[in-house]
Amino acid sequence: MLLICGSGASSGFMAANMRKYVKKAGYDYKIQARSESELGDYVDDIDALMVGPHLKAEFEALAARVPEKVKVILMHPDYYAILDGKGAVEHLRQELEA
């Protein structure tokens, strides 16, 4: 799973919190954070792409840059704003099961 934001800074903090929750919950997810400009380097190695809510205007263009097999998810501002790793992981799980 790859998490992206504009520069990679806020997504780095969010990814760290998500990794903590994943470990605690016993889920088998590998979570990485990168900047939007690095997306092309990782598209072949991911199953899901979570996009920071501040990139909502670019969401469709970002989704078009990844293979069809990749689930592309726009993160919700409510958990993203407070870097709630549990909220993000649970949103990811819901989307992957849908």
Rank of each mutant, 00 (worst) to 15 (best):
M1T: 05
L2C: 03
L2D: 03
L3P: 00
C5H: 09
G6C: 08
S7A: 15
A9F: 10
S10R: 14
S11I: 10
S11G: 13
G12Y: 07
G12M: 12
M14T: 08
A15D: 08
A16N: 10
N17S: 02
R19H: 05
K20C: 07
K20S: 13
Y21V: 11
V22M: 07
V22N: 06
V22E: 06
D28F: 01
I31D: 07
Q32F: 01
Q32D: 01
A33S: 08
A33W: 02
R34W: 05
R34P: 00
S35G: 11
S35Y: 02
E36D: 07
S37G: 04
S37V: 09
G40L: 12
G40N: 11
G40Y: 08
D41M: 14
Y42E: 07
V43M: 07
V43W: 06
V43E: 05
D44Y: 07
I46W: 01
I46Q: 01
D47V: 00
A48P: 00
L49S: 01
M50Y: 03
M50G: 01
M50H: 04
V51Y: 11
K56C: 03
E58C: 01
E58I: 00
E60R: 10
E60I: 01
E60L: 08
A61I: 02
A61E: 14
A63D: 05
A64V: 04
A64G: 06
R65C: 04
P67W: 12
K69P: 00
V70L: 12
V72S: 04
V72M: 09
I73K: 12
M75H: 08
H76Q: 15
H76G: 15
P77M: 15
D78N: 09
Y80M: 15
Y80R: 13
D84N: 13
G85H: 05
G87S: 14
A88L: 15
V89S: 08
E90H: 03
R93H: 08
E95M: 14
E95Y: 09
E97M: 13
A98N: 13
A98C: 06
